[in-house]
């Protein structure tokens, strides 16, 4: 009843229809994925904005000053005086060499600072 060519053509047609359906289905899936990712990016962007604002609040000089006032005694914090600021060239030659002597010393002789801060534990 059917000729071979008919069978082949029907086969091709069915296959084409199947392919089309699959491609369309896949495309929809991808589109959904794209939408999901876009929403995610948006959320992340907004989160980044909030976190930057958060960081800025946490590092506000006024907040840091309050913290310094609270922990000044415990951490032995003092304000810097102008005469404590200087450049290396202000030091006499012999003093500058002391730096090299100290760094040449074996590490076990190094003095450990026993003041502990929140970030550094020794």
């Amino acid at each position: 009843m059917f000729r071979t060519t008919d069978v082949i053509l029907i086969g091709v047609m069915v296959a084409a229809a199947g392919m089309t359906f699959k491609i369309k289905y896949d495309a929809e899936l991808k589109l959904e994925e794209v939408r999901r990712l876009e929403a995610e990016i948006r959320t992340e962007r907004d989160t980044i904005d909030v976190l930057t604002a958060d960081l800025s609040v946490l590092t506000q000089p006024s907040r840091l000053q309050k913290l310094v006032d609270v922990y000044a005694e415990e951490l032995k914090l003092k304000g810097v005086d102008p005469d404590q600021i200087g450049s290396l060239s202000d030091l006499p030659e012999t003093l500058r060499q002391i730096g090299e002597i100290v760094s040449a010393r074996p590490p076990e002789d190094a003095v450990t600072d026993d003041v502990q801060t929140g970030a550094v534990s020794q």
């Binding site: 907004d46 904005d49 909030v50 930057t52 604002a53 800025s56 590092t59």
Partner: peptide, 9 residues
């Protein structure tokens, strides 16, 4: 570059 004002959603 410190933040002075921003929009948050």
């Amino acid at each position: 570059g410190e933040l002075l004002a921003t929009d948050i959603k």
